[in-house]
Design a binder for these strands. Sequence first.
DNA 1: TTAAAACCTACCATTTAGGTTGGTTTTAGT
DNA 2: ACTAAAACCAACCTAAATGGTAGGTTTTAA
Lengths: 133, 133
Amino acid sequence: MMISTKGRYALRVMIDLAQNYGNGYVPMKEVAKRQNISLKYLERILPVLTKNKLIEGLQGKGGGYRLTYTPDRYRVGDILRLTEGDLAPVACLGCEENTCERAGTCKTLPMWEEFYRLTNTYFDGIVLSDLVK
Amino acid sequence: MMISTKGRYALRVMIDLAQNYGNGYVPMKEVAKRQNISLKYLERILPVLTKNKLIEGLQGKGGGYRLTYTPDRYRVGDILRLTEGDLAPVACLGCEENTCERAGTCKTLPMWEEFYRLTNTYFDGIVLSDLVK
DNA sequence: TTAAAACCTACCATTTAGGTTGGTTTTAGT
DNA sequence: ACTAAAACCAACCTAAATGGTAGGTTTTAA
């Protein structure tokens, strides 16, 4: 299982916010109820999205969250990379530099690299607005 | 990280056996040394490959393992599916039937399904002999 | 008879996943 | 000023998966 609940839930929250785009701030309580996810767990997942300016939070009564941009500006790949760390199929990819000492002679490395590219390309080719339809 | 050491090591063993194809039975001790993997750990990974007739083991002195078929008959996808369980990106795929109650309305399901197909297709398009070169 | 090999089972430490608990702070509305 | 609703925050917890190790038994060629 490549994608954990963290990434999947984050994506569902983003879709929910996209569906409510233009209606101001949406309280997480409502999103949690609609998506049937624990509010408390969602609160643990959201900070990475706000800190990276994907969504904006407004505190206090009448507050909530909203998308920072229009739904067509969010690539699924970006959302998943943020919440999952990276989309690398194996450990030796992901970080900037491959520190594996076998890297030079590894027969499988090119295969993993190509799959890594494929994965990023696939998820970067889908934007939030594609999923709302 | 999608692929664990189990799948990666199994693949490296298969490649090693492919490189020694035609030379009779190869003791795991040698493979472990060449691949720099603990022999004991390898012994824990191999049974699934022998039970599924991908490789054949011969006990006793002078024994070892060898590929059952020629290296071009092994799809990487088959090796990974055996050792990793399945290559599903999310939990709701993988099993025969999708038991998730959200399946009917899930906005992300088609995206995961397509990626799942993509993944299987990619790894099924590579055979052991491609990696030996 | 011996050495080398596969084969087998139980255990174990660490990390990750998937949360829960119990708050504090901010703010709109009354 | 007070209250309710919201974001925001930190500590804790349980179960499962990961990545092994330890200590054998069985088989077989030389």
